[in-house]
């Protein structure tokens, strides 16, 4: 499947999992998150481990165990979630980061830069709380 934006399935799982954990009143485990997001358990667990390692989530063991946010949802910017999975996100003038462009100005104008900047600004400006409050109510009313 052709994609224009480099948002991977792992990224999508991470955003959804964080929103679910932020919204859930009780502890929520990896199996439940995988079910709700319709992702594989294995992939979901890997993403959750990564979020724990990067300090965004904590986890408790046992039958009632699960994941919890390490800090309030309004203090977690979306960019932190993406960067926990992908590493530092950068926006360069050249879409392939060519150090020497013989064309002078970009052949494609500003389009690549503009799109990347818009996405990056959205992720920097909005926090997890905003996402939780703006989840489509028609689609999530049965989840909690």
């Amino acid at each position: 499947m052709t994609k224009i934006l480099a948002i991977s399935e792992a990224n999508t799982i991470a955003f959804h999992a964080m929103a679910l954990i932020a919204k859930s009143k009780t502890s929520i485990n990896a199996i439940k998150i995988a079910e709700i997001t319709n992702s594989s358990r294995h992939h979901t667990s890997k993403v959750l481990q990564r979020l724990v390692k990067e300090g965004l989530l904590g986890s408790t063991r046992g039958p009632t165990g699960g994941f919890f946010l390490k800090k309030p949802a309004n203090e977690i910017k979306l960019i932190e979630i993406l960067e926990a999975i992908e590493g530092k996100v950068t926006v360069k003038r050249c879409p392939i980061d060519n150090p020497i462009c013989p064309f002078g100005t970009c052949l494609m104008g500003d389009i690549c830069h503009d799109i990347s900047e818009t996405m990056l600004n959205y992720l920097k400006e909005n926090d997890l709380q905003y996402i939780v409050e703006n989840v489509n109510p028609d689609k999530d009313k049965n989840l909690f």
């Binding site: 499947m1 052709t2 994609k3 224009i4 934006l5 948002i7 991977s8 399935e9 999508t12 955003f15 959804h16 929103a19 709700i36 997001t37 319709n38 979306l78 389009i111 799109i115 818009t118 996405m119 959205y122 909005n126 996402i131 703006n134 989840v135 489509n136 689609k139 999530d140 989840l143």
Partner: peptide
């Protein structure tokens, strides 16, 4: 299908999918 490389399903959330779609359309 081009927006987010993932099958949509009834249980999935919509949040910044709209932005993804807008930016994808802009590029297309």
């Amino acid at each position: 299908e081009i927006c987010i490389g993932r099958n949509r399903n009834e249980k999935s959330f919509i949040f910044f999918e709209q932005l993804c779609q807008e930016l994808t359309n802009k590029f297309l």
